[in-house]
Every structure is written in C-alpha cells, then in structure tokens.
C-alpha cells in the first residue's frame, strides 16, 4: 500500500458565447447634468466583475475617468435586454454593446462641446481626465461637466447612446452538421499533479500549472481571480461534487451543504497561472473572456494524472475514492505509469 504521484495534461478550446437563436445583448449609456455617466444593463454581476469591466470599457470609449462612470444592472424588467451572464459571454457580448453605446454618447458629447467651444467636433479630443479640448490647443478646453450642463439646460440635447452586439443565429448544415456557433475562441492548457492513495482511493491535489489565452485581459487582477476560483470548481467537479446520488436511490443524493461535497481550503493546491494575450479581432479592446473555461481543463488533467499515478482510466465524474479503489482492484493493483 502506497501513495503514488502522477501528472496529467489537458488542453481545451473554448467558444465565447452561445448560439441558440442568435446571441444579442444591449446597453444604454447616458450622462446626467453633473457630467457623470450611467451604463444601464440587464447583465448580472454575480461577483465575476461584470460591473468593473463594463465600467472600464465605457470610460475608455467615452474618454472620461473611470470614476465618472456608474454601471446599473438593477432590473431586467426595466433595463435593456441581455441574454445573460453565462457561456463566458459577458465581457465579449456586453462589452461590445457598451462600447457601441459609449461611442454614440461620445459623438453627442463632442457635438455639444463643439457648440460651446465654437469649433468643429472633428477637431476635438478628450484627455481622459474629464476635459474636452481642441486638438493641438489644450488650453481651448471645456470640462465634461460643463458640456453636460450646457447640453441639458441650454442646448436641449441628451448625451446618450444605444448599443447592441449580436452574433446572429448560425444555421446548422443538415448534411455535415457544421455550424459556426462562436466568433472567437479562448484556449488553455493545464498540468495537474496528484497523489493517489491506493489503500483509500483518495486523490489529493499536489499542484497545478496552467496557461490561458483569453484575448486582452481588460482587468488582469479580475482575470486571475476568476482563473484561481474556477480551477477550484474544476477540482470540485473532478473529485467531489455531483447532484446525482452516489447510490441508486435519488433519496440518497446530497440535499444541503452538509451532504453536498466540495473541496475545502485544505484540499486546494498551489496553482501557477500564465495569462497569454492574443487580442480577438471582434472583442472589445481585444477581449474574449475567461468565464467557464477556468474550470474545464482541470477535469481531464486530473483524470489523466490519476492514470499516470496508478494506471486506471476514470471515465465517470466525480472521481470518488470508491471508484478509484474499485478500478485499482479490478486491474489487480496500482500500476504506476512512466513519470511525465
């Protein structure tokens, strides 16, 4: 009886967004008289950073400080339509919609500024700090706040913009089954090292090393946060959790946090991540998005690492100690493979 180390590798391609009847999201951007901007979305921020990233995209496109942009995701009854925060689509689809809305709002803002400065709007630029100035003549400037006040109370203009981003429905070729469900793909490779106890069947994570190519990382800390947290969920799907019962009767299935197994803080391992950036041609500032793919490569990498450690091919999830023990027994003992 012994503990065996093994290493496994997995690579994935991950499509950004989904395509079941087309994949659209809308955004609305408007300024209030204080020169601050509101982005209205129905896209939900459930902790992944949707608000932060759309705020950055809007501020960058408008040419105003990020502090001057507020993102409101309050209510899908009253907000512009969004398909939802899933399928790793948020940054790409919603980001593009916000960019389009902010571009339109910027156009109105520059027209309003041009009227105040008595110049042509094409000759104006933003400084990213809340001012609009004549190109080559920074002293000929007006603050975005003064432009917003003038638009509201003098010119009678709404500084606002509408945006939608739609990936149209991709028809399936009835002959070949081919379709183009996504416009860009992210990529990842992950190496997992595990330790398998051939007496208990327990699999312990030793370390993970991964590389993710997900377009431009608009907010690198949030990307890293998702990759770290998503890998935990990958471990969880690989080794612990399932809504299905471990035994035939559904009544034996997990019903609550006490019975639904998940890895705790003692079950995690060091994870070294490299983020590679190959900007997507149709992404907002080149972004694709991390999202679901954070978890995906962990499962096959862990299964391959278990094979490398004890020579059993696990093809059912989660890979519980019982399944590992039964498989080792069926093959007549652990058969460590060549160390990779």
């Amino acid at each position: 009886m012994a503990k065996h180390r093994g290493r496994g590798i997995a690579s994935i391609n991950y499509p950004i967004g989904m395509n079941l009847g087309g994949d659209p999201s809308q955004a609305l951007v408007h300024s209030n008289p204080s020169g601050k901007f509101t982005v209205s979305l129905s896209s939900i921020d459930l902790g992944q950073g949707m608000k932060s990233v759309t705020r950055q995209i809007c501020a960058e496109t408008l040419g105003v400080p990020v502090e001057d942009v507020y993102v409101d995701t309050a209510d899908s009854d009253t907000g512009p339509h969004c398909m939802g925060s899933f399928a790793s689509r948020g940054t790409h689809r919603v980001g593009n919609a916000v960019m389009a809305a902010a571009k339109e709002a910027r156009g109105v803002m520059m027209e309003a500024a041009a009227e105040e400065l008595e110049v042509n709007a094409a000759d104006l630029d933003t400084d990213g700090r809340g001012n609009i100035h004549v190109k080559g003549a920074p002293h000929r400037s007006i603050s975005t706040k003064d432009v917003a006040i003038a638009a509201q109370f003098k010119q009678g203009k709404t500084i606002s913009g509408r945006g939608i981003f739609l990936v149209p429905l991709s028809e399936v070729n009835p002959e070949t089954g081919e379709m183009s469900p996504a416009t860009c793909y992210a990529h990842a490779c992950l190496v997992a090292e595990v330790e398998v106890d051939d007496e208990t069947g327990e699999v312990a994570m030793v370390r993970m090393d991964s590389a993710y190519e997900l377009g431009r990382a608009l907010n690198p800390r949030l990307v890293e946060q998702q990759l770290v947290g998503g890998a935990w969920m990958g471990i969880s799907h690989a080794l612990f959790e399932t809504p299905e019962p471990y035994y035939p009767d559904p009544a034996h299935g997990p019903r609550d946090f006490v019975e639904y197994l998940m890895p705790g803080p003692g079950d995690i391992c060091p994870h070294d991540i490299a983020v590679l950036e190959r900007p997507a041609a149709d992404g907002p500032f080149g972004a694709k998005g991390p999202g679901e793919m954070c978890a995906n490569p962990v499962l096959p990498a862990v299964a391959n690492a278990i094979f490398n450690a004890v020579g059993v091919r696990m093809d059912e999830l989660p890979i519980t100690p019982e399944k590992v023990l039964r498989a080792i027994k069926a093959q007549g003992g652990a058969r460590p493979q060549a160390r990779r």
Binding site: G47, Q225, V228, G229, G230, A231, W232, M233, F257, M262, G264, P265, G266, I268, H271
Partner: peptide, 18 residues
C-alpha cells in the same frame, strides 16, 4: 489559517486568495 476557515464554505474564490 486553513484550519480556522475550514467551517466556512466559499464557492467563488477557491480559498487561496482568502
């Protein structure tokens, strides 16, 4: 630290940042 937070479930962060 791991022992101290072992009674607390987190579904997002993977515990490492905590």
């Amino acid at each position: 630290v791991i022992e101290a937070i072992s009674g607390n479930i987190c579904r997002c962060t993977g515990y490492e940042p905590i």
